[in-house]
Amino acid sequence: MYAQMVKTARVGVKPRDEMTEQERAFQDRVDANEKIEPKDWMPDDYRRTLIRQIGQHAHSEVVGQLPEGNWITRAPTLERKAILLAKVQDEAGHGLYLYSAAETLGVSRDELIELLHQGKMKYSSIFNYPTLTWADVGAIGWLVDGAAIMNQVHLQRTSYGPYARAMVRICKEESFHQRQGYDIMMKMAFGTPEQKAMAQDALNRFWYPSLMMFGPPDQDSVHTAQSMAWKIKVATNDELRQKFVDQTVPQIEYLGLTCPDPDIRLNEETGHFDFTPPDWSEFFAVLKGNGPCNKDRLKARITAWEDGAWVREGMLAHARKKAAATAAAE
């Protein structure tokens, strides 16, 4: 998902009899679906895991501006340009909401950004793939945002209040993203032969990376159990992945495109689609930094941040001068 492989400080769920009284009371509140608020007591591991998860999610939104942002200046019509710009702008907004949620846990946005730039925090593997044609903009909205929404809908019920509230706002805004993506895919798939070929090519390239977005298989996700007990993860990787496949296959058929997985088929017994899992060695390679665009993406963010330093300092300096002058006049 936008937060993949978030390390919880421990493996497995802490047994109740090992909990302190405070921890038990905390777990009871979570179990009762009470929201945890910033000033409430919380286990250190809960705080740390949340900071990592929300931070990674925020970074993904911001880095996620880049692949699609590529195409804003090349969008084929004025309306498409406006839609794409509004969409990529929303991603910046979502990053902002999420950083704000993380800040309530006692970490500043600037600290999180520094950690991203130092490579100490990750963002979603999906944004390390290039956008090569206009159809990729459609595929990202349809598949990548589609996959993200699947997780985010659940996270509206997450135990941490500020995170849940950010997700409510994000989900409200995000539903347009997937639709505009599919709308582009329809235009392409039903367009000229070249457009249809572009649409198929985009699907071929984004199919497996989209499946990777949900993170490694449950059997390899050692951190899932504790996160689920804390309700900062509400469904498992495999559950969400299956749901995504089940939802997407009919959409591929409607477009008249071919799923790049030749073995995908409906399992009459389970009612779900059986599919070929992605190549997990590729996933881990991309997470480690060896995807097609890792270095370019990070460099773009670092450049923006460093080139903007004088602006942030200048604006603040002016604000301080003004405040000092006002104070002196009083």
Binding site: G93, L96, Y97, S100, R109, A166, R169, M315, K322, A323
Partner: peptide, 20 residues
């Protein structure tokens, strides 16, 4: 309350709030 943002001063905060 709808959320938070960063701004150097109140005037900018108001404008940023409008934009965000």
């Amino acid at each position: 309350h709808v959320g938070s943002l960063h701004a150097p001063d109140a005037e900018c905060a108001l404008r940023n709030a409008r934009d965000v």
